[in-house]
Design a protein around this nucleic acid. Structure first.
Length: 129
RNA sequence: CGGGAAGGCCGGGCGGUCGCGGCCCCAUCCGGGGUCGAGGAAAGUCCGGACUCACUGAAACAUGGGUGCCGGGUAACGCCCGGCGAAGGCAACUUUAGGGACAGCGCCACAGAGAACAGACUGCCAUCUAUAAGAUGGCACAGGUGAAACGGUGGGGUAAAAGCCCACCUCGUUGCGUGCAAGCGUGACGGAGACGGCAAGCCCCACCCAGAGCAAUGCCAAAUAGGGCCCGCACCGUGGCGCGUUUCACGCCCCGCAGGGCCGGGUUGGCAGCUAGAUCCCCGGGGCAAUCCGGGGGCCAGAUGAAUGAUCGCCCAGGAACGGCACGCCGUUCUGGACAGGAUCCGGCUUACAGGCCUUCCCGCAUU
């Protein structure tokens, strides 16, 4: 249950010149399941799950099941979620936390992007309480 | 101008800013630059192959599955092209699961008298009894039912009729011409006189096929497990085994042992397989066409929790409302871009698809 990044934290997470953190992506099913047991916040366009891990990185995962739609709809929802995470997480996320964003059918792909961003910030504040 | 038929194509474009995946280059590091980056269906996974592993091979038979007019194309096909037959349409053209119903079995609902070695409801005719009507005999023409009714049209014939007889059609046998062929055309026969349909029911005939699939498969690392196999020596028999049966070929085979050698299985870690190919574009030639041959040029996704997104501007199609008039054009505002995304790779089929473009042909009207 230990991944390679734990053994050698080769990339210390610190703001680079452009102001972005290096985000790591969740890939193991076990990581998703542990995050699902943490705090969660429901919004119109997505569901946010979060849990602290104690490691010096911010990690993010995305889930779009077949309930979201066909392959085009799933990929589009995942891309929009990935974009808001890329934009907002470096400034609003907390180090040492894992986050999982879950797409919702037909809403994630059609909601205005600004609304999605504002909802994401609000959801982050809720799970950090 | 209106209506219709066939085939092909596109499937938004350009430019900012920030970002994503592969490869290459520069850089001590941070990082920077270049380049390429989803479809006509990438889809459904329905056929056909390549490739990999497994499998002792060949032939015959069996079993199971598939295909089914003829010719051609192809690596192959159940695909494609060109013909033939049949059906539909004024036509352009379209559709077609199209071998065999004297090898055998089976089925033919409802309606109808009768649905397969015929039978007679309403009828027709003759004779008798004789008021309507009935009895006996003859007939299978007409009516009605049905998806389908025991040949069709015309004539002769008869009490009324019927392939009862005749001509043509049809069916069978056969000759000639033509075509590679399916077939088409035409002739002969004192040949037949009804012989129903269904084989997308079993079946028969001809031909083809036969396991598993890239999570295939190979390599590396780690941890786990403790076993298995081969060689050699020795030894036995003309016997047994080798995934349907038989034959042939080929291979293997008790137990024991001084010794020598080798390794399997599962695990979603990594690497390979992984993208240059029945490939794409252009030109020339053969062919009615599918397609083939030759020459030149190009490199065109290789991810693996899986890369194309966010946002802004202008333009291009489309839609709606309002206004103007020369009545199908102009202006303003708003809206707005189908179906859908690789996962080993090809050839097909099928299904989904907003809107638009091009070519050829047919019919009708008008004009010359």
């Amino acid at each position: 249950m230990v991944s390679r990044s734990d053994i050698q934290p080769q990339t210390p997470v610190e703001p680079c010149s452009a102001g972005f953190l290096v985000l790591e992506t969740l890939k193991k099913r076990a990581d998703f399941q542990r995050t699902a047991r943490g705090k969660r916040a429901h919004k119109d366009g997505f569901v946010l799950q979060a849990t602290p891990t104690g490691r010096p990185t911010i990690r993010i995962g995305f889930t779009c099941s077949k309930k979201v739609g066909n392959a085009v709809a799933r990929n589009r929802a995942k891309r929009r979620l990935r974009e808001i995470a890329r934009l907002m997480l470096p400034t609003h996320g907390k180090q040492g936390w894992d986050y999982v964003l879950i797409g919702r059918a037909s809403v994630t792909a059609s909601l205005p992007f600004d609304t999605l961003k504002q909802d994401f910030v609000a959801a982050l504040e809720k799970v950090h309480q």
